[in-house]
Design a protein around this nucleic acid. Sequence first.
DNA 1: GTGAAATATCAAGCAATATTGATATGATAT
DNA 2: ATATCATATCAATATTGCTTGATATTTCAC
Lengths: 103, 103
Amino acid sequence: MKNNCVEGRSEFNKLNEFSDYLKIIADINRLKILCLLKKGERCVCNINEPLGLRQNLTSHHLKALRDAGLVLTRRDGKWVHYRINTEKLNYLNELYNEIISRQ
Amino acid sequence: MKNNCVEGRSEFNKLNEFSDYLKIIADINRLKILCLLKKGERCVCNINEPLGLRQNLTSHHLKALRDAGLVLTRRDGKWVHYRINTEKLNYLNELYNEIISRQ
DNA sequence: GTGAAATATCAAGCAATATTGATATGATAT
DNA sequence: ATATCATATCAATATTGCTTGATATTTCAC
């Protein structure tokens, strides 16, 4: 396996996985949501209200974050609480270092 | 100035700057270009050829990277050599840590 | 100068994605 | 069971940005 970005199946997959991750967090609203969640678990209405986003738009972005595995959910009666998926984020941070930061 | 992601002019600007950066590097072709350039300076034809990209498309993405300040150029006769702007990238890596990685 | 090579620019087409408005689902309280 | 609150889904529109083809610019060799 070549250790560069052009050849090698494994590197190719990593780059695409990383690209998908970046596309998810590049959106300014999703970035704001992630920042809120970094402070702790929150229900949807405690996300859209401070950010000034419509409920359905917030729900839509949360779905994108959830589909990407970046957040986890927990239902509590009428409320659904969202939180950062720390393990996944740690893995993707490592990918960031590997692809962008190092050297 | 509040130290969170919702309020505070400075935090707002940082998030937008960070979002713009992520949008630039999220594109798979620009990501591949950055990976090539991490190995050292390259002229345009030594970028599009290994990546299998058309010349004008490569040029277009290089312009995006240059406009974002992520790469620097040096003309050498008919050739234009591109290289990573290390200072800028270091700054943005720090921003990544600040906004995403830490805690 | 003329021609050729390397790179850049531009406009048009197209695809992906964000946003909106309306509506549906799921849970609780009465 | 009905009403209400919290959240999710869907279809339509709007927007953004990638890609392409054609053409322009810059530099060098002759």
